[in-house]
Design a protein around this nucleic acid. Structure first.
Lengths: 265, 265
DNA sequence: ACAAAAGTGTTGAGAGTACACCCATGC
DNA sequence: GCATGGGTGTACTCTCAACACTTTTGT
């Protein structure tokens, strides 16, 4: 048996004095992925307050009363990046009693996928010497509760700096999950804007998987899914032959669900 | 915006008077799977106290202070079934603010796999008219905090009775995850005792997938994994030719990890 | 005409699926 | 010797991986 044998007291009321709902605090942390410069990046925040002041950490904040988990994650996401309507999936809940030196804090972690080229996010900066400041400002990030001087930057997801708390494990896990799902589901389309060329899509897959793919095989496979619709448009990258723009066809989704190809959840 | 705009206050101390750690309460609920009578079953508990008194629910209880999530899940599992050292995996965290009528309760859900034929678990009883009483008794189940008259029974996992809270969704999700992982990982071996015949293993797979499998293909596939070692022993099921007993060879695991076949986590 | 990326087919290997008969044992 | 489950092999299909050249455009 560990030290505390106490069982929480339970009360039906909700908004009054203590002791009321006495549980651990719950943080919602998000791994926000995006492909930039041909690499998979994750958004990090520099903590402005102890503990781990000055350390990089995942964006996140505390769950509010009467707020759902997904809702909280979307709120954080919006606060950090200004985006809504992106792919968001719950990852795992980390609950080591010592993961936060301040006391008991669970972290319900999520991962989100931002389309390559999205605006409303901090510029890509080599994180080791990040000098960029906050590049957004509606509600302000919650993470450094009480802190100020924050920075946000896109870090290489495969080579992050030292992170606060157990955020390194969270990031690792998110990377793993993303890679795993990339092959068996359609999450990959979440990393690409609504209209994209097949080469762009391939670059995104390559960035996540960390290896080159064969152009012909990739195109065949992705087209065989039957969820891409060619548009009339094309995009000319530099001074060369224009590439056809495709878009994601939500209509053709259901066939895949049945095959179990889509997100299993 | 929802009603409460309050942000939790944060204090460094931990064990004193309130206001201290003010977060939602956190329950740990477990879907305990087992194959019996050729069907996939899940262990359910009849609630002895409101809310949902008399309703069936997943076994579970509240997270204790200073207790890790996995630790809590294992404790619950031990309390409900007496077993330890079985496959246990975190499933998902359910956080709808209205999921518990008493107030805010998160449910960190797990699923566990018990080897077919394990003792120390309630007898199989048609759940609709379950008459069996508690068949175990070290700490006693935590779930019906304050309740008494509990029962436990194995329900068909594909056709459960009406469940309390959002436990139906949790069970659904667990079934889905189990099925999904069965093909791509080695979780299936968690549902089988340490030594088993190939037919027993096949029956378990069939119960989970809900369909018949071809004997020859099944054997080829499962042997091709290279993680089964034939033992000297055999088991004679009834009055017929004895079947070879196999065991799981943990040694040959690592090859699979690399191929990504093992649990992705 | 040339540079630069877009686009396109074929072949071989391995995995999955469908399918039917002989074998060892207890009675 | 027979009933019962244990155990085995082959052919077809499909998916995946390897591999190189022609086309279109802007300069």
């Amino acid at each position: 048996m560990t030290g505390s044998r106490m069982r929480y007291t339970w009360r039906m009321d909700s908004g009054t004095a203590c002791p009321k709902a006495t549980g651990p605090r719950v943080a919602v942390d998000i791994v926000i992925f995006m492909v930039r410069e041909g690499r998979l990046k994750a958004l990090l925040i520099k903590r402005g307050a102890p503990p781990f002041q000055g350390r990089w950490a995942l964006p996140g904040g505390f769950l509010k009363e009467d707020e759902g988990l997904d809702e909280a994650a979307r709120r954080e996401l919006r606060e950090e990046t200004g985006v809504a309507d992106v792919y968001l999936e719950q990852l795992y809940t980390f609950g080591n009693p010592r993961r936060d030196p301040r006391g008991r804090v669970l972290s319900v972690s999520y991962f989100a996928l931002l389309p390559a080229g999205s605006a409303a996010a901090p510029p890509a900066v080599p994180l080791r010497r990040a000098e960029n400041s906050r590049a957004f400002g509606d509600g302000g990030p919650l993470l450094a509760a009480g802190g100020d001087a924050e920075e946000a930057a896109w870090s290489d997801a495969y080579d992050p700096p030292q992170l606060a708390f157990d955020h390194a494990a969270i990031l690792d896990y998110a990377r793993q999950r993303l890679r795993w799902k990339l092959d068996w589901t359609t999450v990959g389309f979440g990393l690409v804007p609504s209209r994209f060329t097949l080469t762009e899509l391939q670059r995104v897959f390559e960035a996540v998987l960390g290896k080159r793919l064969d152009k012909r095989n990739f195109r065949r496979k992705v087209l065989a899914l039957g969820v891409l619709r060619p548009t009339k448009g094309s995009r000319t990258e530099g001074l060369t032959r224009p590439a056809r723009l495709f878009e994601f066809s939500a209509a053709k989704f259901e066939r895949l669900r049945e095959r179990g190809v889509l997100f299993p959840f």
